[in-house]
Design a protein around this nucleic acid. Structure first.
Length: 890
RNA sequence: GGGAGCAUAGCUCAGUUGGUUCAGAGCAUCUGCCUUACAAGCAGAGGGUCCGCGGUUCGAGCCCGUGUGCUCCCACCA
């Protein structure tokens, strides 16, 4: 078989994706093996995978593939989220482009469009997941609006309603005027911004509405500061601090709203900060959460001057129908013109924006459905605090998690949208309400409760997307719609949840709540939705900026795969991804992955070449190299095991990378490589193929395609993805130490060659002066070959006219035809000597310190003694060598 | 306003019970090589007051205090 010069990912990746699918290797059904379950954090159905997803999916795939190779029945469930607001916004925009107004459509027609849209674009993410090599079970794809999933959500709603945990009520909520729906507190993102603080005059009047004093003196007015002059028509009071001397005379007085001349009371409350602005606050209960609370306390009237779409309502009486921002400009202009603005100042502020549409959020009073959170939060907190669920990395998020749960507020779960699970509440004409799982049940219930038959209409609202996704780990196995079924019994709880730290409240905490609320009959360890939570960092560009459409720094995943190959993308993103920290994405690391592919491809070519010239009779010359590498492999395997169990995947990959590139390719293969055109001993060849196979297996979870390909080319029949990892074995520490010594002396001689311009092809003779020739016994042959030495001869005396090297505590003499550069050698040796002497002094100082010798642990003292002996030996070796150089020079 | 985290080589980061073979890795840099697996490579090298200051200790990159500079989360005073 002819192998191409370089590795070509594209065909290989397609080929293996097909083969894996055909083999059904990633499809899981319950059996007698232990389960290892992962549910994908469902991406938005109409979205595309960005680099954050790519990181998360890669991490999950590594864990899942590794578990599968460890003998678990691994099951990774793919799926997507209907993402109510985001998707509905996209569908509305698409319809608008076609000239269709959503409000002109019936609910049914709109949903038809939405499902069409979902069919058209929903496949993109699945295609990307497959391209990336994710070993998901495609038989288990779940969508949060699937029929059964839908009914599970409804079931949970009605259940919680019956338990008294869900209620409906008028509250101040965050309103998204663009999507025209309520938002939960978590869906609001605050951003710093620059605002203007307007100081506006309000005239003062007595109870009858007459001015208190002459306005000309400037005393008949009260000045308030506001950022939102367009809301003054909604003012229902002016509030000042009771201790504020400036306003003490205004008890019982009234103020008059400018422009509309409506009279409002002046009230007194300690809530007001006397030092801020003028110390007088306009109170607008309909449009500010604090004012709302103040209004409740003082029994103030509520005047809602905004419509749902953010335009001014009839109640505003002026500028009705104008958009809130346009109205602000006009009102400011009018106030200014009438001399009612005293001052305008720039003001740093923070404003809330809708996470889904980006619109500036309005506080708004409206009737919504809420879920009581206190009861749900307590066990969810306990599960994490008591360690049933472990958050990685470390406990960094424990404090945040705890704080949120301890201060959690009721969850606003209704949304004024059509795309989502419609709230199963039915009303009669008087507003009486029944909640039931379907219309028929609702009618029956109504009849039972009210004793009459009436026409009922269903609540128009749908549920918050997270109210469906919090059931995800259960309902992907039908754990809600069909509790106790074989699948959910086998796969639940899942092993690990891999997700971004930004959705810890939206999703992670709520899944824990749902899991505990719907598995009350089980012990805690069985009720939790997952045992571990692994938070990946945020993917940024190489300058540390967030990835965004505006900056254009968010690469297209498929394009990257096309350019570098999926393995290289996975490698690049994992190698630069320290556990838990943000990741600075740079295509340079993808390139490194591509180079790594090639490196392995070339190792494959070498090994395949050997296969052509096998010699069955040739004995293995010496077994050192194979014995050493076997030990090295065992050692690395243990490291990888430990690192992966600690979710330190980036470091595990680095260990494997270095094991393959440095230890296998640079050292081992060179050590066993036959001379030019010489045959290879069959024994060595087969051992090498085994080593290679094991390396590929170790790397496979990280880079599944190329490993699978090479594994098959070197003759393994079983696909890597289902090949069980061999049990860990103990490494031979003697071999490992010999290997390190060998690397050291090879490098020492090569370094001497470079420094003295001895070409690699130039033959040399090496003499070794050592007290311990035993440690060199096994490695001398390889050593000589690797440095192109005709011989390595032990000596007891210095050899004249040679290159002098000190390696460890031993001395090497290199004999070559080229004359040696004495001065350069001397300089190097003297530098060494200086360092060693300094080192010795520090060790001696320590050992000379009685308190150290007495207090430190005995093994620490012993180590110091050994350091001292080594340093002394090395120093004398260097000194003798320097003396020899002087002799040579004479 | 409240809380959390970070600061180690030019860059990105390891450094897990405090012990100068512990100051490391990858990338980048420099030097020499087209050596029949690999120039997408090989061989070799250089590079750091471990943010400043103080303390604990026989001993501090590691522990404590403090200052500085970044990052994030929460709360949302007009």
């Amino acid at each position: 078989m002819e192998l191409s010069k370089n590795y070509t990912p594209k065909e290989v990746e397609n080929k293996w994706n097909e083969a894996w699918k055909a083999g059904g290797y990633f499809n899981s059904t319950p059996d007698d093996r232990p389960a290892y379950t992962v549910v994908i954090p469902p991406p938005n159905v109409t979205g595309v995978l960005h680099m954050g997803h790519t990181l998360n999916e890669t991490v999950q795939d590594i864990l899942v593939r590794r578990a599968r190779m460890k003998g678990f029945n691994a099951c990774w469930v793919p799926g997507s989220d209907h993402a109510s607001i985001a998707t509905e916004a996209k569908v509305v925009a698409m319809l608008r482009e076609k000239g269709i107004d959503k409000n002109a459509l019936t609910r049914e027609d709109f949903l038809k469009h939405a499902f069409e849209w979902k069919e058209k674009y929903g496949g993109i993410i699945y295609h990307q997941i497959e391209k990336l090599g994710c070993s998901v079970d495609w038989n288990r794809v779940t969508f949060t609006m699937d029929k059964e999933y839908y009914s599970a959500v409804i079931k949970v709603f009605t259940d919680l309603y019956r338990k008294g945990m869900i209620y409906r009520g008028a509250r101040m909520i965050h309103w998204d005027p663009e999507a025209q729906t309520a938002l939960s507190d978590e869906e609001v993102e605050y951003k710093d911004g620059e605002g203007t603080l307007y100081h506006i005059r309000y005239a003062i009047a007595d109870a009858a509405g007459n001015p208190l004093v002459t306005p000309a003196k400037g005393e008949g007015e009260i000045i308030i500061a506001t950022q939102r002059p367009e809301t003054i028509m909604g003012d229902t009071a002016i509030c000042v601090h009771p201790d504020d001397e400036r306003y003490a005379h205004l008890k019982g007085a009234f103020a008059v709203i400018p422009l509309i001349n409506r009279r409002i009371p002046i009230i007194f409350d300690e809530y007001v900060d006397m030092a801020f602005g003028t110390g007088a606050l306009k109170v607008t209960p309909a449009h500010d959460i604090n004012d709302y609370n103040l209004g409740l306390k003082h029994n103030l009237e509520i005047v809602d001057t905004l419509n749902a779409d953010g335009t001014l309502s009839e109640a505003a009486t002026i500028y009705v129908g104008e958009d809130r921002f346009a109205a602000r400009k006009k009102i400011v202009a009018e106030l200014r013109e009438k001399g009612l603005i005293v001052k305008e100042e720039n003001y740093a502020t923070r404003l809330g924006y809708s996470q889904r549409t980006g619109a500036l959020v309005e506080p708004r009073i409206s009737t919504q459905w809420f879920l009581k959170m206190k009861e749900l939060a307590a066990p969810a907190l306990e599960a994490v605090v008591e360690g049933a669920i472990a958050i990685h990395p470390g406990d960094r998020f424990l404090a945040t998690y705890k704080y949120w749960l301890e201060n959690v507020k009721d969850w606003c779960i209704s949304r004024q949208l059509w795309w989502g699970q419609q709230i199963p509440a039915w009303y009669d004409s008087k507003g009486n309400c029944v909640v039931a799982e379907n219309e028929a049940a609702a009618y029956a219930l109504y009849q039972q409760q009210f004793g009459t038959a009436e026409i009922l209409t269903q609540d128009a609202d749908v549920l918050d997307t997270w109210f469906s996704s919090w059931l995800w780990p259960m309902e992907v196995f039908k754990g809600i719609s069909n509790p106790g079924n074989a699948d959910v019994n086998y796969y639940y709880p899942t092993a690990v949840l891999v997700t971004g730290q930004d959705i810890i409240f939206f999703w992670v905490a709520r899944m824990i709540m749902a899991g505990l609320a719907y598995n009350t009959e089980k012990p805690l360890e069985q009720a939790i939705p997952f045992r571990d939570v692994y938070f990946t960092g945020m993917v940024r560009d190489k300058l540390g900026r967030k990835m965004s459409k505006q900056l254009g720094n968010s690469p297209d995943l498929l394009q990257l795969i096309d350019e570098y190959g999926a393995d290289a993308v996975r490698f690049g993103i994992m190698i630069s991804s320290p556990a838990g920290n943000d990741l600075l994405f740079d295509t340079a690391s993808l390139e490194q992955g591509r180079f790594f592919n090639n490196k392995m491809w070339n190792a494959l070519k070498l090994v395949k070449m050997w296969e052509q010239k096998l010699s069955a009779d040739l004995p293995e010359q010496d077994s050192f190299a194979t014995e050493w590498f076997a030990s090295r492999l065992n050692e690395a395997r243990l490291q990888v095991d430990k690192l992966i169990s600690e979710f330190r995947l980036s470091e595990a990959l680095k260990v494997i990378y270095s094991l393959i590139w440095d230890d296998f390719c640079s050292w081992y293969l060179e050590w066993v490589k036959p001379a030019y055109e010489q045959p290879v001993a069959a024994a060595v060849f087969y051992k090498t193929v085994n080593f290679f196979s094991e390396l590929l297996q170790l790397l496979h979870p990280f880079m599944p395609f190329i490993t699978e390909e090479i594994n098959s080319i070197i003759g393994n029949r079983t696909p890597l993805c289902i090949k069980t990892l061999p049990p860990d074995a103990v490494a031979d520490t003697t071999r490992l130490a010999e290997g390190e010594l060998l690397k050291q002396v090879i490098t020492a001689v090569r370094d001497a060659r470079v420094r003295n311009q001895l070409k690699p092809k130039q033959e040399i003779a090496v003499f070794l002066q050592t007290d311990d020739s035993d440690v060199y016994k096994n490695i001398t042959n390889v050593w000589a070959r690797q440095v192109n030495a005709t011989s390595i001869v032990p000596v007891h005396e210095p050899v004249a006219n040679c290159l002098n090297i000190v390696s460890g505590r031993d001395r090497l003499y290199i004999q070559a035809e080229t004359p040696v550069d004495m001065a350069a050698q001397k300089q190097q040796l003297e530098k060494d000597l200086e360092y060693q002497r300094g080192f010795l002094i520090s060790v001696e100082k320590k050992l000379g310190n009685e308190r150290f010798v007495q207090n430190a642990r005995p093994e620490v003292v012993a180590i110091e003694r050994k350091k001292k002996a080594d340093a002394e030996a090395k120093i004398s070796a260097i000194e003798e060598t320097l003396a020899q150089l002087d002799l040579d020079q004479k």
